[in-house]
Every structure is written in C-alpha cells, then in structure tokens.
C-alpha cells in the first residue's frame, strides 16, 4: 500500500461577511507520496484556495488536512508555520523572490530559517540545487538580473531547499514563455519522479495532462478526476471520503 503524503477530509472553506461565500465545499482528497497532482478549473472555481489550504497558508472552516500523517486542524499558527517551513515548498505564479538578495541567498533563506544544517552544508546544498536547475552560473545574481524562467527556477530551488515532502505550486508557469514553461514543468515532473509529492494548480490543460492525476474543480467541488489523462470514476476524492468514514 502506497504512503499518503497529503489528505483532506470534508474540507470546507467559507468566507463570512455581508455576503457569505463558500470557496471550497467538502473536498475529500488523498495524494500519495511521489504523486504529481494537477488541479484545474475555471477562474474562481476554488483551485488556488484549495492549494493554499493544502499548503497550510490558509485554515479550513471545516474538515481536516493531514500532512504526512499529521492532522493540522488543531495546530497553532506557530506550529503551522513550522510545518510549512519543513514539510511544504511553495512556488507561486510570481516568483516572489526577495529582490535585494541574490539567487543563492534566496535559496538559503528557508534553510537558514529552519536552522537544521550547518552554514557550510546549507551553502553546499543551495549551490547544488541551483546547479541542478541550470542556475549554477547565476547564483550571485539578483532577481532583476535574471529572466522570468530563471527566477521561477530559483523559486523552485528555494521551495526544494528544506527537502519538503510536498511541493505546492500555484500557476508556476503562468507568466512564462513556452520554453521556460516546458523547462519548469519538466523539473516539477522530475521532482515527483524522485519521490516528492507535487501539487500544481494550472490553467494549461496540456500540462495538466502530463500529471499522474488531474482533478477538475468547479464551484469548490471536485467535478472530475483523471488518472494519467484518462477519466476514472474511482477518484481520489472517493478514497478520502472512505478514510473519513472509517
């Protein structure tokens, strides 16, 4: 039986206000370790909201998120931050690199924040990551000296810095040209193949089709699940629901 990296049970995210709005409406999902999951859906369907919930950037109104076997609904904000730091790696549509820091310093940031390695080891790992992503020569450059694709690869290196179990990417190729898109997506594929779980939100159906599984969200619910490009009725959502009822 494969290991579950990420699991949601009855996940609901509701925004209260003058007009209440339900962003996520009862999603049960289970993502295996090393799986590449793509989340698609029209604008406003709730795919980014789901991603932020999965990465503990946002807290659900109801339901549970289990990351590497650890339930998170009762964690304090500090504990959630610690989980984000050590178990999740984020990549956003905009690279969100710190502009005053070099590529190397940006990659070092999560490692220095976690403080789990010696300075030498951190430096070696950061260089190794940048080199593996084809940025060895760009380590000393600041974000404004890099191309869009290079910036996004630096952001990927930063996301991978603390060896997280899960990489969460929100439209990581949304601002890239075709060549850079191919490159970044290829890297994400490689990351998943190496055993890390990758969850990606994308509008690009062709890219989503290259994921191990694709879930299509409409109005905060999973409308369709496709495995390896083929729709299957026995979706991961059903797996999540089964766990919830057990």
């Amino acid at each position: 039986m494969s290991e579950i990296a990420l699991q949601t049970v009855g996940l609901v995210r509701r925004v209260e206000g003058i007009i209440s709005h339900t962003l996520i409406n009862g999603i049960d999902l289970s993502v295996e370790k090393g799986e590449f999951l793509a989340i698609t859906g029209p604008s406003g369907s709730g795919k980014s909201s789901l991603l932020y919930l999965l990465g503990l950037l946002d807290a659900p109104t109801e339901g549970e998120i289990i990351i590497c076997g650890q339930p998170t609904s009762k964690l304090s904000e500090i504990e959630r931050a610690d989980v984000r730091l050590t178990k999740c790696g984020f990549v956003f549509q905009f690279h969100f690199l710190l502009p005053e820091f070099t590529a190397l310093e940006n990659v070092l940031l999560p490692m220095r924040a976690a403080g789990l390695m010696s300075a030498r080891d951190m430096h070696q790992r950061a260089i190794a990551l940048l080199t593996s992503l084809g940025l060895g020569e760009q380590a000393a450059k600041r974000p404004n000296q890099l191309s869009g694709g290079q910036r996004q690869r630096v952001a990927l290196a930063r996301a991978l810095a603390n060896r997280p179990e899960i990489i969460v990417a929100d439209e990581p190729t949304g601002n890239l040209d075709t060549a850079s898109t191919e490159q970044v997506f290829g890297i994400l594929r490689d990351i998943a193949d190496s055993g890390q779980t990758v969850v990606v939100v994308t509008h690009d159906a062709a890219l989503a089709a290259r994921a191990d599984r694709r879930i299509h969200i409409v109005d905060g619910k999973i409308q369709e699940t496709t495995f390896g490009g083929k729709p299957k009725s026995e979706s991961a959502a059903a797996t999540g629901a089964a766990i919830a009822s057990s």
Partner: peptide, 13 residues
Amino acid sequence: HDIAIMKSLGMRE
C-alpha cells in the same frame, strides 16, 4: 510581498 512570502515559507510572524 516579502512579508507574505517569508510567512508562507514558514517564518513566524
């Protein structure tokens, strides 16, 4: 933006 990204990376408030 930097504050948001630092918090999202797991740095405490």
